[in-house]
């Protein structure tokens, strides 16, 4: 696979939020304001790149049976590292992100990329995948936050937009508005990609973290997926 393609895949075609529908919890919570969205996106990107690199480096050392605990330890380590550095050097941002920063540990995007990509590819490709997926996550958050903050709060990155003050749609800053914008964005991306992305091979049983034990109970699953793909 071309290195540029590895990077660009995460931006739109395999966008972790709008195509793979991963990391929904931080997406909905942090897309209320643009500053929060950028901060969360960059923190997750840093963890994604670092964990992808380390997991790719260790892919031949880590036994299959303990790979998930190993990934979790690596990811949790990087998240704690980011937390400590952020609390020390960017305390305002640290407070803004609150509990969602710690929740990066259980963000499906990071574990998903470790399992689907980093443990099968080289260091450079894994780093590029982390970068692309991280930027894809950040861009999705930013796009959602822009819609929610501008139309819901009549402001952009905290700066008031005077002429929109009387036309605010407050529901957009509330959780139902988050789901509404999220749904519209997914529909838009599906329209742009003509809905082909979810049928790519990496999203079938082979790419699923649960495939090894799921297939024991579902013998026909693989054949069924292959037939559907054809």
């Amino acid at each position: 696979m071309k290195k540029t393609k590895v990077f660009t895949n995460g931006l739109l075609k395999e966008n972790p939020v709008l195509v793979l529908v991963l990391g929904t919890c931080p997406t909905l919570a942090m897309s209320v304001s643009i500053i929060n969205a950028i901060a969360m996106g960059l923190a997750a990107t840093a963890v994604l790149i670092c964990s992808n690199i380390v997991i790719s480096l260790l892919r031949k050392v880590i036994p299959d049976t303990v790979r998930i605990p190993c990934y979790i330890v690596v990811i949790a380590g990087f998240v704690t590292l980011v937390q400590m550095l952020m609390e020390a050097y960017l305390p305002d941002l640290y407070e803004m992100l609150g509990v969602y920063l710690a929740l990066i540990v259980v963000n499906c995007i990071i574990l998903g990329r470790a399992e689907m990509f980093a443990n099968k590819h080289g260091v450079l490709e894994s780093a590029l995948d982390g970068l692309g997926m991280g930027f894809g996550f950040t861009l999705a958050l930013l796009a959602m936050a822009t819609v929610r903050e501008v139309l819901g709060n009549a402001s952009f990155a905290g700066m008031k937009i005077g002429f929109l003050e009387n036309y605010k749609i407050p529901i957009l800053t509330a959780p139902p508005g988050g789901f509404l914008v999220f749904g519209c964005m997914i529909a838009l991306v599906a329209h742009i990609t003509k809905g082909r992305a979810p049928f790519k091979k990496s999203f079938d049983c082979e790419g699923c973290p649960s495939a090894s034990f799921c297939r024991k109970d579902c013998a026909g699953c693989a054949e069924k997926t292959e037939t559907e793909a054809k």
């Binding site: 260790l58 050392v61 036994p63 330890v73």
Partner: peptide, 10 residues
């Protein structure tokens, strides 16, 4: 090996 690898990573 599994035990050693996980312990070393931790």
């Amino acid at each position: 090996k599994s035990i050693i690898v996980l312990t070393v990573i931790c």
